[in-house]
């Protein structure tokens, strides 16, 4: 494929035919353009179905709903870029959220550790990510099985911390209204998601860590052969994903103002399809944070619009699941080959 494309451009150069700037721009950004167009089309359809969709309140609503999945999707993008998968997101989120609430001012009493509540919660999440990463790289357990186990370990930690007492809720009103308050015309949680995404994009583009991540995902054997510290990179990716899940857990708790062990249920189902339709390949090595941001906005627009069009919320996971299937089938379609092995 690549060689024919090269031959074409060489031909073009040889015949002196100028390559159109617009055409090459479209070619380079085909995913971003097609997702943006899909969001636009969806917005028009939903506005016709229910005029309330295009109201300012609802747009704020969409951004508010997109905040949490966006944070999670950034972590998931890193993991998918190295060709692995992190299924532990929901478990790690509940463990971090529960730790956070119990260490800050809450209805169950206890000491308010202030700033340290954030540190310990995110630290715990990063530690869970670290264990996943080490088990994956050193013990060579496939990432989907390690993180499936870690999902339930996280849930278990949250359930044990929760105990048999009443549900703890936040007693600090400034904190429990933080997520929906606005700055720069955007709800705080979306703003935080955007900041995490921008940091992620900068890390990926401008640090050696980011470049090694892409190289590992692209071809691990060659990366190793070139002396890159592949294992260290993979563990770092899982630690970052864990820490980001921890942040997401805290945000989820703040949004609800309270916490129970199932607080994160359903989040994996928005984040994963969003990353995949954002153009990040499940095989690794290819993808972008911009794609992920747009993927999250597309999915949130879709679920929000369906709710406004009076579709039962029971259909929510089916929509995400269907989109996940569609996205992976479309990306795999061109690579079909009788001799290709996919597990």
């Amino acid at each position: 494929m690549a060689s024919t494309a090269n031959a074409k451009s060489m031909n073009r150069a040889a015949t002196g035919q100028p390559t159109s700037v617009v055409a090459s721009f479209i070619k380079r950004n085909v995913e971003v353009i097609s997702i943006s167009a899909s969001i636009f089309v969806l917005a028009i359809i939903f506005s016709i179905l229910n005029p309330r969709f295009a109201s300012v309140e609802n747009l704020e609503n969409i951004l508010n709903q997109a905040g949490l999945p966006l944070i999670i999707a950034v972590g998931a993008t890193f993991v998918i870029l190295i060709g692995s998968i992190d299924l532990s997101v929901e478990g790690v989120m509940s463990a971090a959220g529960m730790t956070f609430v119990l260490m800050t001012a809450n209805s169950r009493g206890g000491t308010d550790y202030g700033f340290w509540a954030y540190v310990v919660a995110i630290g715990l999440a990063a530690a869970l990510g670290f264990f996943s990463g080490v088990l994956f790289t050193k013990v060579k357990v496939p990432s989907f099985i390690v993180t499936l186990g870690m999902w339930y370990v996280g849930l278990g930690v949250a359930t044990v911390l929760f105990g048999t007492d009443t549900m703890p809720f936040l007693t600090n009103d400034d904190l429990s209204t933080w997520a929906s308050q606005q700055n720069l015309g955007m709800p705080n949680n979306f703003l935080l998601g955007l900041i995490v995404a921008i940091l992620g994009a900068l890390f990926l583009r401008f640090t050696s860590f980011g470049r090694v991540t892409l190289a590992v995902g692209n071809n691990e054997e060659i990366a190793r052969g070139n002396g890159l510290k592949v294992n260290r990179n993979k563990v770092t990716v899982f630690v970052i994903a864990g820490a980001i899940s921890g942040i997401a857990g805290i945000v989820a708790t703040i949004q609800l103002g309270a916490v129970n062990p199932t607080i994160a249920a359903g989040n994996l189902f928005i984040a994963l399809p969003a990353v995949v339709i954002g153009g990040t390949s499940l095989a690794g090595g290819k993808g972008s944070m911009l794609g992920t941001v747009l993927g999250v906005i597309l999915l949130t627009t879709l679920t929000n619009g369906l709710t406004l069009a009076d579709v039962s919320p029971n259909f929510k996971t089916a929509v995400s699941g269907g989109i996940l299937i569609l996205a992976i089938v479309i990306t795999a379609w061109s690579q079909r080959d009788r001799l290709r092995i996919s597990k």
Partner: peptide, 13 residues
């Protein structure tokens, strides 16, 4: 030829 864990995660939903 999609990975089974990803597809069955979708059908799970």
């Amino acid at each position: 030829q999609v990975p089974s864990f990803a597809l069955t995660l979708g059908t799970f939903g």
